[in-house]
């Protein structure tokens, strides 16, 4: 029996191998066919085009992010949460966070308000064909075209307590000696104002574009329905541009958390930390005190805060979007 079994087993084994080899060969030929089709139909093109973007994201965003996170949790080659525990008890950090929140709040409210008002003025001017409204809109973009450094230097001179033009003009109103950038009370307001001046044209242009997206026929329908200009503004214009405005607020908040250049050029975070936002603190810790680990920990915290704000806002945004929105 055993003798007769062996060849049978061998046959089964061989057949098994043959079948396996067969499957293997089929898979290979399938793959070959897929690859040929992939090349022949130029299906690789989208992958190739995306590869460049993916690589640049990895190199410019993912790598620094991972490096930053690792720097914050590794100290002298060992894993440590010391930077984070220090952060929690560091009064400077909490102060900088508070300054950042104030900066973000006043900056966002201010820039949205000024952007809205100027956009509305231009829109009404253009609608009623007032002379100069087109020139005004071209002039408005000027601050946006000036580099941060140049703009900040100009404002440094203008806000100079002794020789600045602002205090000179205010002196006619009987207001004298305001220390725009060196007084703890005024410095934050000053950097917010200069920040708004620098970027409000972009908000104006976006909001102006939003106004233009509202179909004219809606106003005509409202006209026939008997709505006054003011009622049309509240019942038609505002709801129609609400989604664009919400999105602009989100972008402004995210951007303003990270604003650095103008604050640094005007006050370097002073006087007495009065304008020291988290962005300034990160820079100071990393390049003044050379504490890269601690700076990274603050940067990671900032990232989490901005991320959380964005997620919450987007969630709210999507909910209101689901309720209706534009056609």
């Amino acid at each position: 029996m055993s003798r007769s079994m062996k060849p049978v087993n061998k046959t089964i084994f061989c057949e098994g191998m043959t079948i396996k080899m067969g499957i293997f060969n089929t898979e290979i030929s399938n793959l070959k066919e897929k690859f040929t089709r992939f090349c022949r139909n130029e299906e690789y093109v989208p992958y190739l085009l995306n590869l460049l973007i993916v690589l640049s994201i990895v190199l410019l965003f993912v790598y620094p992010l991972i490096y930053g996170v690792l720097s914050s949790v590794y100290s002298k080659g060992e894993f440590s949460v010391a930077n984070y525990s220090r952060l929690l008890t560091d009064r400077n950090f909490w102060h900088a966070l508070w300054v950042t929140v104030l900066y973000v709040f006043f900056y966002t409210v201010g820039i949205m308000f000024i952007g809205f008002v100027t956009a509305l003025a231009i829109d009404v001017g253009e609608e009623r064909k007032l002379p100069g409204s087109k020139i005004l809109s071209s002039f408005l973009t000027l601050p946006y075209a000036i580099p941060d450094v140049v703009g900040s230097l100009v404002w440094l001179w203008m806000m100079n307590p002794r020789h600045g033009i602002i205090n000179y003009l205010l002196s006619f109103l009987g207001i004298e000696g305001l220390k725009w950038l060196t007084s703890g009370d005024l410095a934050l307001i000053s950097v917010v104002l200069v920040g708004i001046w620098r970027l409000f044209p972009m908000h104006t242009l976006i909001i102006l574009a939003a106004f233009k997206t509202v179909p004219r026929s809606l106003y005509e329908a409202a006209d026939l329905d008997g709505a006054s200009t003011l009622q049309q503004f509240f019942y038609i214009t505002l709801p129609s541009i609400a989604n664009i405005m919400k999105f602009l607020v989100l972008l402004t908040v995210v951007w303003s958390f990270k604003r650095f250049t103008i604050i640094w050029l005007l006050t370097r975070g002073g006087p007495m930390h009065a304008t020291e936002t988290l962005a300034i603190m990160i820079y100071t810790e990393a390049f003044k005190f050379f504490d890269r680990g601690y700076a990274s920990a603050i940067a990671v915290s900032l990232l989490i805060i901005v991320g959380a704000v964005s997620v919450l806002y987007m969630k709210f945004f999507k909910e209101s979007e689901a309720e209706g929105g534009l056609l």
Binding site: P215, S217, L218, E220, A221, A222, Y235, I236, P239, S240, A242, G324, G325, L326, L327
Partner: peptide, 10 residues
């Protein structure tokens, strides 16, 4: 209206 001009948010 040709485009109906319905108020989209209402």
């Amino acid at each position: 209206f040709q485009s109906y001009a319905l108020y989209p948010h209402m």
